[in-house]
């Protein structure tokens, strides 16, 4: 079992904070979001900062990053600070 966590702005579109899944990769989760929640949700998910266990997929294998049991995939807002 893996967990998907939604943050702003995608949270406002799918209207959930999290859900469970058995999907095996980041790409699979993105496809699921498109199919279950529509184009807007998919666009928001694709442009979010996508993290697996709080680490950016950019440090793993990008969208091909696999998800193992117990993993959490998160869609974080993109931002910066000081």
């Amino acid at each position: 079992m893996k967990t998907i966590r939604y943050y702003a702005p995608i949270r406002g579109i799918v209207k959930k904070e999290s859900e469970e899944t058995e999907l095996g990769s980041v790409k699979d989760v993105l496809d699921y979001i498109k199919q279950a929640y529509g184009k807007d949700a998919f666009a928001a998910a694709k442009s979010a900062l996508i993290v697996v266990n709080d680490v950016s997929i950019g440090l793993y294998q990008g969208k091909k990053t696999p998800l193992a049991d117990g993993d959490t995939i998160g869609f974080l807002p993109v931002s910066g600070g000081g």
Partner: peptide
């Protein structure tokens, strides 16, 4: 602008915690 008009007013600079964590 997404940063100065949305992100910073919404999360402040504190929004950086998860970003820094995401890149170790």
């Amino acid at each position: 602008h997404p940063m100065t008009g949305e992100s910073l007013p919404t999360y402040g600079s504190a929004g950086l915690v998860s970003k820094a964590n995401a890149t170790n």
